[in-house]
């Protein structure tokens, strides 16, 4: 649901999304040393493949976005991982679009980057249980932020979308719950098994 296809958004909204995505990618790429390209790419591949797993929620199932988990592990490089993931989705499955690529990148990556800025330090310092709790909250909030971003992009594109945009936000609630739990447990696992995998753990 986070992948808006071509032909839905108005061109000004799509252009603004592209501008935002280019700016975020610029910031991220400046921090990406060539040496770290293999590691970043391998983690991006993991995030992409884990998001393909259908996690059952009630009678339906959801696909995780993992933006908070990514943020807590690779920080601002989330933007790079999200762009690569979205490009692969578009190429392999035809999800998303070219004109909407910028909006989709910002909607998914920005909450992850914010989660990294706000919580990477506290999560790296906290005990596993508390880190899991913080990460869970970050997971839920970032999914809701993505939902809000999708709704905002729709509402700004056309006033006629506004009622649908409100419903879109509601459809993100089950995903937010699943994302919170999986992100929390995953961070708890990493804290116990490989704490230096988290951003901010090592200088």
């Amino acid at each position: 649901m986070a992948h808006i296809p071509d032909g839905v958004l108005s061109l000004p909204v799509a252009a603004a999304g592209w501008a935002g995505a280019v700016a975020m990618a610029g910031v991220a790429l400046r921090r990406l040393e060539e040496e770290r390209i293999p590691e970043t790419a391998i983690l991006a591949a993991v995030f992409f493949t884990v998001s393909l797993v259908a996690v059952p929620v009630g009678p339906s199932s959801v696909h995780l976005l993992l933006s908070a988990l990514m943020g807590l592990m690779i920080g601002p490089l989330v933007t790079v991982a999200v762009m690569v993931g979205l490009a692969l989705q578009l190429l392999l499955f035809g999800f998303g679009g070219l004109t909407s690529f910028g909006v989709n990148t910002v909607n998914i990556a920005l909450p992850g980057v914010v989660a990294a800025l706000v919580l990477a330090g506290p999560v790296a310092r906290a005990a596993p249980g508390r880190a899991a709790l913080l990460a869970g909250i970050a997971g839920a909030v970032s999914v809701l932020a993505t939902g809000g971003g999708v709704a905002l992009a729709l509402a700004l594109s056309s006033g006629d979308y506004v009622p649908s945009a409100r419903v879109v936000v509601v459809t993100y609630l089950p995903l937010a719950a699943a994302e919170a739990l999986v992100t929390g447990f995953a961070i708890g696992f990493l804290k116990r098994v490989k704490p230096d995998a988290l951003m901010g753990a090592t200088p």
Binding site: V46, V182, F185, A186, G188, V193, A197
Partner: peptide
Amino acid sequence: GNMAGMVL
């Protein structure tokens, strides 16, 4: 969650 952590 553990599975995601393990793969990572």
